[in-house]
């Protein structure tokens, strides 16, 4: 096909562009195209792929083998230490993914590709949403792997295969908050140095100020207050309940809190994104 033919097709396209379902279809097309870009990059970075997939499973083995001996089963309220830790490790993985997942956004911003993207007729939210879609798929693979390892180590999920699905859903909801928050940070900072300083500063406290290692009931009162403000706590609570106890009403409550946090963070992230990309008007 020649350039002239290329031009000739333009008018045909213009007609189809403005139909009613068109907007949603275009949005899906953008998000998928961007996600494809993230996928290709990950698949070509073999080492990155291997390490990021295996990391949570390896943590679980180390924790399981070592720390178990030092833990008071009275405090954690169960004999199944690995089952207890599983939720914490999945959550920590999500936070780690959030930090490393914002990196491509930082590079795009600093290398100027972001400008190219912003000059295109795409919705402002599609970059962040594509990142979210990509992360959810990637980490679902990580979670399935770490759960398999847990099964091998003798953990039994109280709610069975359906519970596993709800665990993946919980993880996805938390990912929404985490991806949006770290994306917002990536767009807000002047340089990547600040991003890593802030991200490094917040991620460990985020984990320690949750119920990842200690149940809420065993915390000092002030810490419990802080932990209750932390979205991680709700993800861990939901997943831990699904693994150890079964279908309890608090699972639903936790999911609701997570969904709310996700929506708030996504709104915040998109707002930051618009602000930082010099956007004054809805795109």
């Amino acid at each position: 096909m020649t350039i002239e033919q290329l031009d000739a097709r333009k008018s045909a396209r213009a007609d189809s562009a403005d139909s009613a379902g068109g907007a949603r279809r275009r949005y899906a097309q953008e998000v998928l195209a961007l996600a494809r870009r993230w996928w290709i990059e990950l698949l070509r970075e073999r080492l990155n792929l291997v390490f990021s997939l295996a990391q949570p499973a390896i943590w679980l083995v180390f924790f399981g083998a070592g720390v178990e001996r030092a833990i008071d089963t009275e405090v954690i309220g169960t004999d199944d230490y690995i089952g207890f830790m599983l939720a914490g490790i999945v959550t920590f993985t999500i936070v780690g993914n959030g930090v490393s997942g914002a990196m491509p956004l930082l590079w795009d911003k600093e290398t100027g590709y972001l400008d190219r993207l912003m000059s295109m007729p795409i919705a402002r939210s599609s970059v962040i949403v594509s990142r979210f879609v990509f992360q959810v798929v990637q980490q679902s693979a990580q979670i399935l792997l770490v759960v398999s390892v847990a099964l091998v180590l003798g953990v039994r999920i109280a709610t069975g295969p359906l519970g596993l699905l709800v665990i993946l859903l919980t993880a996805a909801l938390l990912t929404m908050s985490v991806t949006a928050a770290f994306s917002a940070l990536a767009y807000a900072v002047p340089q990547h140095g600040t991003f890593f300083a802030v991200a490094g500063f917040v991620s460990l406290p985020l984990l320690f100020m949750s119920n990842a290692f200690v149940p809420l009931g065993a915390m000092p009162a002030w810490m419990e207050v802080v932990a209750r403000l932390n979205p991680l706590t709700y993800a861990i609570e939901a997943m831990r309940t699904l693994v150890l106890d079964g279908w309890e009403p608090r699972v639903a409550a936790s999911l609701a809190v997570l969904a709310l946090a996700g929506v708030v963070c996504l709104a915040l992230g998109t707002w930051q994104f618009r602000k930082q990309t010099g956007e004054r008007v809805r795109g």
Binding site: R13, A17, E30, A33, L34, R37, M120
Partner: peptide, 14 residues
């Protein structure tokens, strides 16, 4: 791949 991805971002027919 670069060109195809950007073509999709311009909403050209798949």
């Amino acid at each position: 791949e670069c060109v195809e991805i950007e073509a999709a971002l311009y909403h050209l027919p798949r």
